[in-house]
Simulated scan of single mutants.
Amino acid sequence: MPSTKKSLHFLSSALLTAISIGVMGYCMSTQWAETTMDCTKSGDNFSNGTAVITWELFIGDLNRFYCPLFGAQESFQVIPTLVKIGQITPVVLHALVLCLLALCLLCSACSILISLYNSVSNPYETYMGPVGFYVCSSLSACLSVVVLIIFVVNVTVTSMAEDLVKSSSENIPAELRNKSSQMKLGYYLVILYSVLSIFAIVVIYQYEHAAYTQKREQQRPTEDAPKEIMMY
């Protein structure tokens, strides 16, 4: 049976990882970004309207205010709509974000299982030991950081938002300018997920470091002994 100290450390890491999964689950159901653009009728230099797109992972909302002539508000399915308007690169990037988030959840679930297993046993020499936990939690943190980068590139760099507005502009040519994007709660919760995954690694590392130090001290009891005693 493991020591009480070890059980507490691994149970604490499991709790942190469980909280991170809850954070990830919530962030996947809320807003990630908002994109705003000035909108005019093609050939008109006067900006008389705006278009605002609110992005979630699976659905989005498009609000057009006199863009280009009249306003409208509609919801859309993100990936099907992007496929319909012929957006290949944004579709691939958005699908990659979803796949990476699913992998993050899978790695976090594995981290919890490994933590619980280590809290009741001592599998140091197997993949179910601390090394397995380090691998799973590190993958969770790293993949979530990649998600942050890909999502912000997809929203700000590609023409995903502009093409979406043009495809819904009542068949009237529209000119869009001054695009700006603001990240929302869902995006920042991914950062919190990464931090919690790192904290879980730190908790296990602290225990492993202390256990290793204690083991080294027990293996070398004569290092600090006086030379006169060691001669006999």
Rank of each mutant, 00 (worst) to 15 (best):
I85C: 03
G86P: 08
G86K: 06
T89D: 03
P90N: 13
V91D: 02
V91K: 09
A95W: 08
L96W: 02
L96F: 12
V97R: 14
L98T: 09
L98D: 04
C99P: 06
L100C: 08
L100D: 00
L105I: 09
L105T: 13
C110V: 11
C110A: 13
S111R: 01
I112T: 06
I112S: 05
I112E: 01
S115I: 05
S115Y: 08
S115M: 10
Y117C: 10
S119E: 02
V120L: 11
V120A: 13
V120N: 10
S121V: 03
S121H: 12
N122M: 06
Y124I: 15
E125V: 13
E125G: 07
Y127F: 11
P130K: 04
P130F: 08
G132E: 01
G132W: 06
F133S: 12
Y134R: 06
V135K: 12
C136P: 03
S138C: 09
S138Y: 06
A141H: 06
A141K: 02
C142V: 15
L143P: 11
V145D: 03
V146S: 09
V147E: 03
I149P: 07
I150G: 03
F151A: 05
F151P: 00
F151M: 10
V155L: 02
T158S: 06
S159C: 07
M160K: 11
A161K: 03
V165S: 00
V165C: 00
V165L: 00
S167H: 08
S169H: 08
N171T: 03
I172S: 12
E175M: 14
L176H: 03
K179Q: 13
S180R: 13
S181W: 01
M183Y: 08
M183E: 05
K184C: 02
L185K: 13
G186Y: 14
Y187T: 01
Y187Q: 04
Y188Q: 01
L189Y: 11
L189R: 05
L189Q: 10
I191Y: 07
Y193A: 09
Y193D: 06
S194T: 13
V195I: 15
L196H: 08
L196M: 11
S197Y: 07
S197W: 12
I198H: 01
F199Q: 01
A200D: 02
V202H: 08
V203A: 08
I204Q: 09
I204F: 07
Y205E: 12
Y205R: 14
Q206C: 09
Q206I: 06
